[in-house]
Amino acid sequence: MRVATRAKAASRRAKFSVRLAGIGLTSAVALGLAAGPASAQPGPPSGEGVQPIECAPGNPACPDGNPTFADLEEYGFGDFPCLGGPIRIENPQEGDQAGPVTITNIDPDNTFDFTVDEDFAVIGVIVKGGPNANVYDYRPNGIQEDTNLHAPVNPNNNTFYGLSYIDFCYVPDGNNT
């Protein structure tokens, strides 16, 4: 009888050891996933309340980190009929102007403001920074100014990525015709 009791005890210890090892392995995998690299986020809305959409590899709504307005149409965003094509400001600085658009402010935290001449309206802005970009969609009516636009949030330091370039899509402002 003692042999059977010892065998049962040994069997229970073996099962317990296997379960304990399984729990340890599951915990290690969970911690490894949680400690893996974080992904960027689009960040808060602009001053006018427009929530950016982050374009990043793996995002089915906008999978390319370097989108153009033509790409956005392909991704299902609809048409951006930019007058004369979109304009780009590379390495933007406060006071930069391209076509009817002027960068009016760039803060040290990498947010910026813009205005557009009164005969035009901006219907879309792509802000490239880091490996991804944020898209601000002002359709259908467009807007003549906005504040606090930014690139996506860098997950390594929770600040906005630096500004690489800004693309503007503008149209004639229907309110001034």
Score class of each variant (00 low, 15 high):
residue 31 L to H: 00
residue 31 L to R: 00
residue 31 L to K: 00
residue 32 G to M: 09
residue 32 G to Q: 06
residue 33 L to Q: 06
residue 33 L to N: 02
residue 33 L to M: 10
residue 33 L to C: 09
residue 34 A to Y: 14
residue 34 A to G: 14
residue 34 A to L: 15
residue 35 A to V: 02
residue 35 A to N: 14
residue 35 A to F: 15
residue 35 A to L: 15
residue 35 A to W: 12
residue 36 G to A: 15
residue 36 G to R: 06
residue 37 P to S: 13
residue 37 P to K: 09
residue 37 P to W: 09
residue 37 P to R: 12
residue 37 P to Q: 13
residue 38 A to Y: 03
residue 38 A to Q: 12
residue 38 A to R: 09
residue 38 A to W: 09
residue 38 A to T: 02
residue 39 S to I: 15
residue 39 S to E: 14
residue 40 A to T: 12
residue 40 A to W: 01
residue 40 A to N: 05
residue 40 A to P: 12
residue 40 A to C: 06
residue 41 Q to F: 03
residue 41 Q to T: 15
residue 41 Q to L: 13
residue 42 P to I: 04
residue 42 P to Y: 05
residue 42 P to V: 03
residue 42 P to F: 07
residue 42 P to S: 11
residue 42 P to T: 05
residue 42 P to N: 09
residue 42 P to M: 04
residue 43 G to K: 04
residue 43 G to C: 09
residue 43 G to F: 10
residue 43 G to P: 13
residue 43 G to V: 13
residue 43 G to Q: 07
residue 44 P to M: 04
residue 44 P to T: 12
residue 44 P to F: 09
residue 44 P to A: 12
residue 45 P to E: 09
residue 45 P to W: 04
residue 45 P to L: 11
residue 45 P to K: 02
residue 45 P to Y: 06
residue 45 P to T: 07
residue 45 P to R: 02
residue 45 P to F: 12
residue 46 S to P: 11
residue 46 S to E: 06
residue 46 S to M: 13
residue 47 G to R: 10
residue 47 G to M: 12
residue 47 G to S: 12
residue 47 G to L: 10
residue 47 G to N: 10
residue 48 E to D: 14
residue 48 E to Y: 06
residue 48 E to P: 11
residue 48 E to M: 14
residue 48 E to R: 15
residue 48 E to G: 15
residue 49 G to S: 06
residue 49 G to N: 10
residue 49 G to Y: 13
residue 49 G to Q: 11
residue 50 V to N: 00
residue 50 V to E: 01
residue 50 V to W: 00
residue 50 V to C: 01
residue 50 V to Y: 02
residue 50 V to S: 02
residue 51 Q to E: 14
residue 51 Q to S: 14
residue 51 Q to D: 11
residue 51 Q to V: 15
residue 51 Q to M: 14
residue 52 P to T: 10
residue 52 P to N: 08
residue 54 E to R: 14
residue 54 E to T: 02
residue 54 E to Y: 02
residue 54 E to W: 01
residue 55 C to Y: 03
residue 55 C to T: 01
residue 55 C to P: 14
residue 55 C to H: 06
residue 56 A to P: 07
residue 56 A to L: 08
residue 56 A to K: 05
residue 56 A to G: 04
residue 57 P to H: 00
residue 57 P to L: 03
residue 57 P to W: 01
residue 57 P to K: 00
residue 57 P to E: 00
residue 57 P to Q: 00
residue 57 P to F: 01
residue 58 G to Y: 11
residue 58 G to D: 07
residue 58 G to S: 07
residue 58 G to L: 08
residue 59 N to C: 06
residue 59 N to V: 02
residue 59 N to F: 08
residue 59 N to Y: 02
residue 59 N to D: 12
residue 59 N to M: 03
residue 60 P to E: 03
residue 60 P to R: 02
residue 60 P to F: 01
residue 60 P to G: 00
residue 60 P to L: 04
residue 61 A to S: 10
residue 61 A to Y: 00
residue 61 A to M: 08
residue 61 A to L: 14
residue 61 A to C: 00
residue 61 A to P: 00
residue 62 C to W: 01
residue 62 C to H: 03
residue 62 C to Q: 01
residue 63 P to A: 09
residue 63 P to C: 11
residue 63 P to Q: 05
residue 64 D to Y: 04
residue 64 D to F: 13
residue 64 D to H: 06
residue 64 D to E: 06
residue 65 G to D: 00
residue 65 G to M: 05
residue 65 G to V: 05
residue 66 N to W: 09
residue 66 N to S: 11
residue 66 N to T: 07
